[in-house]
Design a protein around this nucleic acid. Structure first.
Length: 265
DNA sequence: CTCAGTGTTCAGTG
DNA sequence: TCACTGAACACTGA
């Protein structure tokens, strides 16, 4: 579930069902991997009885502003999400936490592969890991000129830089590939080797793609038909094409990268 | 049975 | 110290 648009969708869901209400009960799974630096029972104690005032997001991190500190901080890893329901029998498998609100609404975070993280912070925004994040393309997007200046200082492949959360918070594998495809830039090129016009084009593609994905609430069916996204995976990978151009798959920056050599230079 | 995957961290290197 | 790389983490489904 988890790149910026999917996390923003979860933020809006939580905002709709939690804000203005008190947490009546907290149920936790006994998972020492997902709970970081806090025992599940301590986490539950911190939240119980609090009123939720706001749901905040930066990059792929989410946290709740409560009427008492510390506040809960969430990261979905590769498989986390928020789910809302009222009947306890609808509680998802592999849930790590479930909040029961005073009006009977329940919100749970399931996390099958346990790469997600749940913690407590006095002030999440000013403490790691949130404080170490780079710009968020939805909240903080630098101007194309500033973006080009940032590129000029980095020697790493552009794909690796886009995935670096201390550079661009919230960008994950599919967004990075989509942005490079639409900007016509090959993923292995070093960031500092991009021309200024290329760097500016990359900035505007990043901004546009993230805003569009958020505008359709991260619903893949509603992504524009022209996006690489729809063709990048699939069973017969080797035979995949976009608009008749061949897609290839290779490992760059430790991640499988789908790109189109005839379009990206 | 093997391996990749919408991710992050950290040890090791230069 | 900084920038960067690659392995480790966990576990399901193809």
């Amino acid at each position: 579930m988890p790149e910026l648009p999917e996390v923003e969708r979860a933020r809006k869901l939580a905002e709709r069902v939690l804000v203005g209400k008190r947490i009546r009960k907290v149920t936790t799974a006994n998972d020492v991997i997902v709970y970081q630096g806090v025992l599940p029972c301590r986490f539950a104690m911190a939240l119980k009885g609090c009123r939720v005032e706001a749901i905040c997001r930066r990059g792929k991190y989410l946290w709740f502003a409560l009427d008492r500190r510390p506040w809960p901080l969430f990261h979905f890893g590769m498989t986390g999400s928020f789910q809302v329901y009222t009947a306890i029998r609808d509680r998802p498998r592999f849930f790590k936490v479930e909040l029961l609100m005073e009006d009977g609404t329940r919100l749970a975070m399931p996390n099958v592969r346990r790469l997600g993280r749940i913690g407590l912070r006095k002030d999440p925004e000013s403490q790691p890991p949130v404080s170490k994040l780079g710009f968020d393309p939805l909240l903080d997007m630098p101007t194309p000129q500033m973006f080009a200046a940032m590129m000029a200082k980095r020697k790493t492949p552009i794909k690796a830089l886009l995935l670096n959360q201390s550079f661009a918070a919230g960008v994950g594998n599919w967004i990075a590939d989509e942005v490079l495809y639409q900007a016509h830039i090959a993923p292995h090129r070093r960031a500092c080797d991009l021309r200024v016009d290329e760097a500016k084009r990359l900035a505007s593609c990043l901004r546009r793609i993230v805003r569009k994905a958020v505008a359709v609430n991260a619903d893949k069916e509603r992504f524009p038909k022209t996006w690489l996204f729809h063709d990048r995976w699939g069973k017969n990978r080797n035979a995949k094409t976009v608009h008749g151009e061949k897609i290839i798959h290779e490992t760059i920056a430790g991640r499988t990268t789908a790109w189109v050599p005839s379009v990206q230079r």
